[in-house]
Design a protein around this nucleic acid. Structure first.
Lengths: 222, 222
DNA sequence: TTTATTCCATGCGAATTCTAATTGTAGAAG
DNA sequence: CTTCTACAATTAGAATTCGCATGGAATAAA
């Protein structure tokens, strides 16, 4: 998980960076509000830690502009201010949480975890009958037995399942899985379909990967 | 973090639910002991808040039955009783902490944090077969024999074990262990994997660090 | 400086991907 | 129903890619 810290007090940011890195987050630090916003807009980050007061532009303004492009990335404010009004103002501007300085590092960690847990649709899995494909961990199961697949086999199966119950033309498959965008007449697809069916050990009554003659293939829920 | 409150006094449970949700916990409330147990056994929750006296079955009995399936989920009792005997009895039945009514919400929050923190630390018994990795002391053991590792070796192994049984893409590894966020094609990972396998002296039948060709590596429990 | 760690460059070997030739089959045409 | 044709399935092996191991260079630490 990647976290961007925008904080002008080097002491704090170093402390945070070090601590968060020990927790396996990848951390970048930016001191200036303006360049912080630019970095944030790169879309590289899963969470922002913003100081309330920043040189350049304020954390609130940064949040407001950032939210236009990234409505879902969690933002946590680090703030010395504790008046209700300003806190409300901050949260209204699009932040998800705030923490008052000085704070315990553990408490910050917890808030970060909460935000990231809510946001990450963690184990998104694609299914096709007894077959379960997990894109993130690059694993395929059939009846909870793991099936080792090669890269291309995996990519092909993923494409088919994502287009479940839709016929996939050979040209579409070649485009998406092989990234070939011109007319290309080849037998690769057949070969990989073949090895997929083999590895998945599909029986006669398990016609999950169907051939559409003259067109392509279809992953079909039975 | 998901919390289940089992409490028959609606006033208290509403108060708790609202407060905890403001702290970004996901909260469910159940009034009845029996149905509370059923809900708890769904395994959806990271922590239980139980009233001592409940309609249906008592908090103690709930705890006892719940512990069979979930020995690690923290349980905090809310109790009006304050005799030492009964408290001891409650803790022996498998609760982790208790708090006497009436209580300050902040205090409850603190106890919840402590429990969740302890859990997440304890559950980080980072093991992989005979390999045990202790993040705090920066040590790695194999069969209680210490294996000296360098920083990067340690970081890499830690990352792999934290993602045990999941394939780690090279890009993720580079991101998390080396903190490099752009496309970077290099052989470093291979080199360190190599030295890890060497230092850990993995035999043929100890395929704990598996290569997923074209994708990355996976720490796998055999 | 010396020493240890991290990283780079290389060739080899092995797994994957692809080509191509053969065999099998569905469906149309007769 | 039989034959024919076009397409799909299967297989072997060629081509390619990728990971492994190694030695040593660059960098950081002592």
């Amino acid at each position: 998980m990647r976290i961007l810290i925008v904080e002008d007090e080097v002491g704090i940011s170093n402390f945070l960076k070090q601590g968060l890195e020990e927790e396996n987050y990848a951390v970048d630090v930016e001191e200036n509000g303006k360049s912080g916003l630019e970095l944030a807009l790169s879309g590289e980050y899963d969470l922002l830690l913003l100081d309330w007061m920043l040189p350049g532009i304020s954390g609130i303004e940064l949040t407001r502009q950032f939210r236009v492009s990234f409505p879902d990335t969690p933002i946590i404010f680090l703030t010395a201010k504790d008046t209700v009004d300003e806190t409300v103002f901050g949260l209204q501007s699009g932040a998800n949480d705030y923490i008052k300085k000085p704070f315990h590092f553990e408490e910050l960690l917890e808030r970060i975890r909460v935000q990231l847990r809510n946001r990450s649709k963690e184990n998104e899995s694609l299914t096709l009958g007894p077959i379960r494909l997990i894109p993130q961990s690059f694993q395929v199961f059939k009846n909870s037995e793991e099936i080792p697949l090669t890269q291309k086999e995996f990519a092909l199966l993923e494409f088919l399942i994502r287009n479940k119950n839709k016929v996939c033309r050979r040209t579409r498959i070649i485009e998406s899985v092989w990234d070939i965008h011109f007319e290309y007449n080849t037998g690769v697809i057949d070969v990989f379909i073949n090895s997929l069916r083999k590895k998945l050990n599909l029986q006669k009554d398990e016609d999950y990967i169907q051939t559409i003659r003259g067109v392509g293939y279809m992953a079909k829920e039975l």
